[in-house]
Design a protein around this nucleic acid. Structure first.
Length: 595
RNA sequence: GGGGGUGUAGCUCAGUUGGUUAGAGCGAUCGCCUGUCACGCGAUAGGUCGCGGGUUCGAGUCCCGUCACUCCCGCCA
């Protein structure tokens, strides 16, 4: 009971029959019958129908109240007649007979209707986010987010982790994404950076002797947006543990994610013990390091087939001779699919910028296997049998080939796996398919410069006997680096860290950083590691993406209360904005005007 | 930085081959209606067809440019 209400709009039911109550909320909807007026009053807890007839002299005033006005209604709870019960509402068995009312907050004419299932442009939704957030779907999503985060905190504390906060103003790091920079007034010409992740801090927390760290950590990266990637800021469940190896991290995170997804979704978890797939296997079988394991299609390598003399498909044979490879996807029992099914996929592949996908179907005619389709005639029966053996295809199955360099083939077939599976409706939307991707290479070749660079986190521990590590073959070195993927979404990335400074210097040297530059750029951490650092490791699941999966949303703005738009602007608050010249002067900053 | 999509009433959209006065639903305003819950019925107001230029007797429609939003590629250790 407050000045404004005795109950919320979601809690009254048949047990309150006869009570005098006071409700406050927004006018969700009015239904005016001239002599009888229904008003749906809404708050975050629900909707309660209030009713008044024209014998009451308040009728004339209440019928004029615009939708989304904040109002207070006083009245008596009455049960509804049987045939007027609304089963859609928690309060649907009762209604409030209005005896008095008060306007608490007026509204101007609405730029977007709140009570509607219509879709609205992002522009209007973001500009009037406070109205958009009143709408039920996104309102629920935001509350889901709150509950999930609260649950995560309880779980982590249950696992013995403590939440420690780390700085928001820190130093710029040379690796990785662009930093957001913050000029320092007290240190003219120098800049702070917002943390891309609390990576170094969480390791420093371990060196400081705190054993199990977690944080719902804001992360800032000045990179371009995607539907599932906010520009600017996002949140990670940042985790770090001392005295652990990879499997110890896996145990904690599998338990946590199983608990979260079971509690907040009715969808089935395909494997509660997450399968572990090596990076190289994943790239071969799925063409990607974030495979959607709901999709049963797999990719296989058939390059060798195209060196056979009884294969006459000259375009591919020529490319293979020049170093291209051929990989393929088999679709089961697609013998009777119409020509358009195959041609659509080929056309789609061309639209993706490739040379298309060659295809054929295996058929058995007079006890002889042969390839049907435009390129079927180029393959002998024996060659077909060999392809079927290698690709595990059977009579009546079809196969789509892609030929090109490794990267292009992987990329196209990764997309094709998804495209074909959707065309054939092979993906069960009611499951969560988690997996670990493990054994990432420590280094890769930078395509532009041709130089060796860290493929992921430079602070990861290389695998194998550290005394026998062959630093001359850096591309062969694997790291204790791992990702979690769920339904094709990269959920998190983590590693066992390198806590040995001498080894760190050697590994950085391979990527072109001498000791001096490592000392300079990672001074905080490299110094700390020299004073008794425990073996440690961790991971950082993305909070936003977890919520997206739970809410079944494809766009991160649907689960973010006040998101930036794709151009990293806040249309409601007008950020970023110009600042006054004297503020810039104070910061020793000049704006260079573009022509 | 590059490519695709969209832009018409407050909101969501339709608008034919370039042809009369640009329409609908919701919302707003006014009127009618006693059991609705997407209430119903009638009327009224509401338009720089994103913006600029061009082609044409004539442009919402075609062309060029530009802006905004969005999706993708690059980017995101």
């Amino acid at each position: 009971m407050t000045l404004y209400r005795t109950h919320t709009c979601g809690e009254l039911n048949i047990n309150n029959n006869g009570e005098d109550v006071l409700l406050s909320g927004w006018i969700n909807k009015k239904r005016n019958h001239g002599n009888l007026l229904f008003v749906d009053l809404r708050d975050t807890y629900g909707i309660t129908q209030c009713v008044i007839d024209n014998k009451n002299n308040l009728f004339k005033k209440i019928e004029k109240i615009p939708l989304e006005t904040v109002a207070q209604f006083q009245g008596r709870v009455v049960t509804r007649e049987k045939d007027t019960i609304n089963k859609e509402l928690k309060s649907g068995e009762i209604e409030i007979k209005i005896t008095n009312f008060k306007i608490l907050g007026k509204t101007k004419e609405l730029p977007l209707p709140v009570f509607s299932d219509q879709e609205y442009s992002e522009e209007i939704r973001l500009k009037y986010r406070f109205l958009d957030l009143r709408r039920s779907k996104i309102h629920e999503n935001i509350n889901l987010r709150s509950k999930v985060i609260s649950f995560i905190r309880k779980e982590m504390e249950g696992f013995g982790f403590l939440e420690y906060q780390t700085p928001i103003l820190t130093s710029s790091s040379p690796e990785g994404a662009r930093d957001f920079l913050v000029p320092s007034r007290l240190n003219p010409g120098k800049f702070y950076a917002l943390p891309q992740a609390p990576q170094q801090f969480k390791q420093l927390i371990m060196v400081s002797g705190f054993d199990k760290y977690f944080q719902i950590a804001p992360c800032f990266r000045d990179e371009d947006a995607r539907a599932d990637r906010s520009p600017g800021e996002f949140y990670q469940l940042d985790i770090e543990m001392s005295f652990v190896e990879q499997k110890d991290v896996f145990t904690v995170v599998e338990k946590l994610l199983n608990n979260i997804f079971k509690k907040f979704s009715s969808k089935k978890i395909l494997n509660e013990k997450f399968p572990q797939i090596t990076f190289s296997d994943s790239m071969l079988k799925y063409g990607s390091d974030k495979p959607d394991l709901r999709n049963p299609l797999e990719i296989c390598d058939l390059t060798e087939i195209f060196s056979r003399t009884d294969v006459k498909f000259e375009i591919f044979k020529k490319l293979v001779k020049e170093g291209s490879l051929v990989r393929a996807i088999v679709t089961k029992k697609t013998k009777n699919k119409p020509r358009s099914f195959f041609d659509n996929i080929d056309r789609w592949a061309k639209e993706e910028g490739s040379n298309g996908l060659a295809y054929l179907t295996f058929e058995n005619e007079e006890n002889k296997i042969s390839g049907k389709g435009p390129i079927g005639k180029f393959f002998s029966s024996d060659a077909c049998k060999e392809i079927m053996k290698k690709s595990k295809a059977e009579n009546g199955d079809s196969i789509f080939f892609s030929c090109g360099n490794k990267k292009d083939v992987e990329k196209l077939l990764s997309l094709a796996r998804d495209k074909i599976a959707r065309d054939l409706d092979l993906i069960d939307e009611n499951i969560f398919a988690f997996c670990w991707i493990v054994d990432y290479p420590m280094y890769e070749i930078d395509e532009k410069s041709g130089q060796i660079k860290f493929s992921h986190n430079p602070f990861s521990m290389p695998q194998g006997d550290l005394n026998k590590l062959n630093l001359n073959k850096p591309l062969d070195i694997k790291a204790y680096q791992y990702d979690i993927v769920c339904n094709g979404v990269e959920l998190s990335s983590g590693a066992i860290r390198n806590h040995i400074p001498e080894l760190m210097y050697k590994l950085f040297a391979i990527a072109g950083y001498n000791k001096q530059s490592v000392d300079e750029k990672f001074s905080g951490m490299i110094n700390a590691l020299s004073y008794g650092a425990p073996p440690h490791g961790g991971i950082a699941p993305g909070i936003d993406r977890i919520i997206m999966l739970l809410a079944g949303e494809k766009n991160i703005r649907e689960i973010t209360m006040f998101p930036l738009n794709q151009n990293a602007q806040d249309l409601m608050m007008n950020a970023p904005s110009n600042v006054e010249d004297n503020r810039l002067k104070e910061l020793n900053i000049n704006i260079i005007k573009k022509k």
